[in-house]
């Protein structure tokens, strides 16, 4: 488009190549907003940021919903959720809509993450013989493994408290009883703790980095991300530990 682009193309092949450096392959530019986005590493990160924000919004609502176990009737909350918009979507319809959105978000988030991770591996085929601990934060280094831990946990968690298959009580609709049956066992609490702490790290870097991926770098966002991640971590962990220590029974 600009004057340097065309001559460079026509020189190609006529000049003797003396350097082993890579040459940009000729390929068509992606057309249309979604394709353009997905074709670029920056676009893929933007997709991860937006889907991450959706998942974060869900987590916030989920955490607040969980806290009804302290202040009210969590079984009633479950019924309330299923009755929401029931005239339009039918009983439990909203829950299915949310599930569909979450599945789409998780698939996009993970696909982009895996593709970017594989590209990174290709960009550094030979490693360093000596490499001290990374200078970046712990959270930044654990995004990929943290994400895998969280994904495995979500599978277990759905079988536990949604499907009830892995729950010691496991009766549909008896949310309070299911939760209490779970967290009386220290090993269940341990599994949830591991996952939620991994989630906290994931969120801390994810929130901070997501803002930047979308082109925003507000001041004090590192501190804000830390506070939000802590609130989510503590909020989620409060329920298992309350049951373990007999505060909720």
């Amino acid at each position: 488009m600009y004057w340097t682009t065309r001559p460079r193309r026509s020189y190609r092949g006529r000049m003797a190549v003396t350097s082993p450096a890579p040459v940009r392959p000729e390929k068509p530019v992606a057309q249309g907003f979604p394709r353009r986005l997905w074709a670029s590493t920056v676009g893929k990160k933007a997709v991860m940021a937006v889907t991450g924000a959706i998942l974060f919004g869900y987590l916030l609502a989920h955490m607040i919903g969980n806290l009804t176990i302290f202040f009210g009737d969590i079984d009633g909350y479950g019924v309330f959720l299923r009755r929401l918009l029931a005239p339009v979507l039918g009983y439990g319809g909203l829950v299915w809509v949310i599930r569909a959105v979450l599945v789409l978000a998780v698939v996009l988030h993970m696909t982009a993450a895996i593709q970017l991770a594989r590209r990174s591996a290709r960009a550094r085929p030979v490693g360093y013989a000596k490499r001290p601990r990374a200078q970046g934060g712990y959270a930044a280094r654990t995004m990929r493994w943290g994400g895998v831990i969280i994904a495995l946990f979500v599978g277990y968690h759905l079988l536990d408290l949604t499907a009830g298959v892995l729950n010691p009580h496991g009766v549909d609709g008896q949310i309070h009883a299911n939760v209490v049956a779970d967290f009386r066992h220290w090993y269940v609490v341990a599994a949830y703790t591991l996952a939620v702490v991994a989630l906290g790290f994931h969120l801390r870097h994810g929130l901070w980095s997501g803002l930047r991926s979308l082109g925003r770098a507000p001041s004090r966002s590192a501190a804000a991300a830390l506070v939000v991640a802590l609130v989510i971590t503590i909020g989620f962990l409060s329920v298992p530990y309350a049951v373990l220590f007999g505060i909720v029974r």
Binding site: P22, T41, K45, G136, A140, R141, W208, R212
Partner: peptide
């Protein structure tokens, strides 16, 4: 063939 940025800050 450069990798994508994950804002590690290295």
């Amino acid at each position: 063939g450069f990798g994508g940025c994950t804002l590690t800050g290295e």
